[in-house]
Simulated assay, not measured.
Amino acid sequence: MPPTKAPRGLNDRRRQMMAAAVADIIRGGLEDGAPSKFAFEAPIRQAIRSRLCLRGKLWSEADLIAGDVVARGLALVGAVRPTWAEGQPDYVQLGAGAQIERTRCVRCHKPLPGEHTKFCGTLCAKAYHMRLARLHNFNDERAYDTAARLS
């Protein structure tokens, strides 16, 4: 949600132009497989804030401006923050939010042994999470580079 009083530093027209560019980054990320409209929120905000600081803005002022621009961009793509439960990886919208019942490993698809609920063992769990971390890092760097060119 944008602040009630827009922080000074960039006029409203420039903020709207930057917000439109942020919305384009978000849409592009969704087309490339980003998990949600919020996937690039942090790297974009950080890139804009960083660029403003390099241009002489105080960190606190730059952060308010970057937050305002990113909030406007999210609003342009119709982003609505989920509840905490909806934000959990195993949430499914079936009425009250039923858990996914799995019988096979998420990574290797072997049958799940005993009390395991997602991975067949620690090897698959670690490999899966390392792959996700690499993917998120790559997407964050792309979003940062694009957002840095905006400001």
Results as ranks from 00 to 15, higher is better:
M1A: 13
P3W: 01
P3L: 09
P3G: 06
T4W: 06
K5A: 07
K5P: 01
A6G: 01
A6C: 04
P7Y: 05
G9N: 14
G9L: 14
L10E: 10
L10D: 06
L10M: 14
N11T: 02
R15C: 07
M17K: 11
M17G: 09
A19V: 04
A20G: 15
A20S: 15
A21I: 01
A21T: 10
V22F: 03
A23V: 06
D24W: 06
D24E: 15
D24A: 14
I25P: 00
I26R: 14
I26C: 12
R27Y: 02
G28H: 04
L30K: 13
E31W: 04
A34W: 14
P35F: 09
P35D: 13
S36G: 11
S36L: 00
S36R: 03
K37F: 05
K37G: 12
K37I: 01
K37M: 11
K37D: 10
F38E: 15
F38I: 03
E41W: 07
A42Q: 15
A42H: 13
P43W: 08
I44R: 06
I44M: 15
R45V: 03
Q46H: 10
A47P: 12
R49Y: 01
R51D: 03
L52G: 03
L52M: 05
C53E: 13
L54M: 06
R55W: 00
G56S: 07
G56E: 08
L58M: 04
S60D: 09
S60K: 12
E61G: 10
A62M: 02
A62T: 02
D63N: 14
D63Y: 12
A66P: 07
G67A: 05
V69F: 00
V69W: 00
V70P: 01
G73C: 05
L74P: 05
L74G: 05
A75F: 07
L76D: 12
G78H: 07
G78N: 13
A79T: 11
A79K: 13
V80P: 02
V80E: 15
R81N: 06
R81I: 00
R81E: 09
P82H: 03
W84Y: 10
A85P: 01
P89K: 11
P89D: 11
Y91E: 07
L94Q: 15
G95H: 01
A96K: 14
I100K: 12
I100Q: 15
E101I: 10
R102T: 02
R102F: 04
T103V: 08
C105N: 08
C108W: 13
C108K: 13
C108S: 15
P111A: 04
P111Y: 05
L112P: 06
G114E: 11
E115A: 15
E115I: 02
H116T: 05
T117F: 08
K118S: 13
G121H: 01
T122E: 15
T122H: 07
T122P: 13
C124R: 01
C124M: 03
K126C: 06
A127L: 14
A127M: 12
Y128C: 08
Y128W: 08
M130E: 15
M130G: 08
R131M: 07
R131P: 00
L132D: 08
L132C: 06
A133Y: 05
R134I: 00
R134V: 03
L135I: 09
L135M: 12
H136R: 14
N137F: 09
F138S: 12
N139T: 04
D140L: 03
D140A: 14
A143F: 02
A143S: 08
Y144A: 10
T146S: 12
A148G: 01
S151Q: 07
